[in-house]
């Protein structure tokens, strides 16, 4: 079969192509993951459905209190969005430390989650905001909670013929993101973590959502840690408990970048950092996840 490359000129056209080619189709937009795999000869033969030219998928807007981001929106658009800076700093910060400026100009939100890497930097913020993925197909569309979107390393709940067209979430200004890689740019995350906190007047965390990446086959919510924190103040003893609890939420492996032990220690340390940052208790601590 070889590789084929077809450029879609509208979303309906793309959906039609996806339906026609079914399992052989592979959506390409920024190409920052697929082109690398193609060059490494680690990509099965396929029909690329190119959606890079679809301006209708490039937007960030607010609708009924939700932030809606088109799947074709680049990471560099995110890191320059005043809307995200003010209302969803976790995603803003993730975009800032994503790969490097060249990659950010090309890589897209839809591609980053669609690629379903365990270390995808945009995934923890979207999980912490409890976001939704808008999935379109030729005969309709469905809303999928992002928690159900990732099903394994490189695998998603998308069916053949389906296309991610948007991610949407209720933003929270009390949110933050921290990334630890092996260096400060062009680094695949060893641990990335986002927190979104609903703070009461007295500083109690009415609700808290924490999501962490690169420590399990998919980015995961740290439910046990969240349970330790919910309804309490971000005090030392409370955070200590949550740090212990996050160990049951994660299941890291040892790979070429880091050992399981390193990931476990850093995950708990960064959980503390990201929660405090989201509560605006100690920002600018410097170091990892600037």
């Amino acid at each position: 079969m070889g590789y084929q490359f077809i450029t879609a000129d509208s979303v309906p056209h793309a959906l039609e192509l996806l339906e026609r080619y079914g399992r052989d189709a592979r959506v390409i937009c920024g190409g920052t993951d697929l082109m690398v795999r193609l060059h490494l000869k680690r990509l099965p033969e396929c029909v690329f459905i190119n959606i890079r030219n679809l301006e209708e998928l490039r937007y960030i807007r607010e609708e009924d209190g939700m932030v809606c981001i088109g799947a074709g929106t680049t990471l560099s658009t995110l890191e320059n969005s005043l809307l995200l800076l003010g209302k969803a700093p976790a995603l803003f910060q993730a975009a800032q430390v994503f790969a490097d400026p060249n990659v950010r100009h090309s890589a897209t939100v839809g591609g980053n989650i669609g690629n379903a890497s365990p270390s995808a930097d945009s995934a923890p913020p979207l999980l912490a905001f409890d976001g939704q993925v808008v999935v379109a197909r030729k005969d309709g569309r469905r809303l999928l909670p992002i928690r159900e979107f990732f099903t394994g390393v490189g695998r998603t709940a998308l069916e053949p013929g389906e296309l991610v067209t948007e991610v949407r979430f209720k933003p929270n200004p009390d949110s933050a993101f921290v990334k630890v890689g092996l260096r400060n740019a062009m680094a695949i995350s060893v641990v990335n973590i986002a927190a979104s906190v609903d703070l009461a007047q007295d500083g109690t965390m009415k609700d808290v959502r924490i999501a962490v990446g690169a420590v399990a086959p998919t980015p995961v919510r740290a439910v046990c840690a969240e349970n330790c924190l919910r309804g309490r103040r971000p005090e030392e003893a409370v955070i200590r408990q949550a740090m212990d609890a996050i160990q049951t939420d994660i299941k890291p492996i040892t790979d070429v970048r880091a050992s399981e032990r390193y990931r476990r220690i850093v995950a708990e340390n960064m959980m503390r950092r990201v929660v405090l940052k989201a509560c605006r208790i100690c920002e600018n601590e410097g170091g990892a996840g600037r």
Binding site: V180, Y262, V266, N269, M270, R272, R273, G286, G287, A288
Partner: peptide, 11 residues
């Protein structure tokens, strides 16, 4: 240098 004792990062 600045050493981040939570991550081991040396800046």
């Amino acid at each position: 240098v600045e050493v981040d004792t939570d991550t081991g990062e040396v800046k």
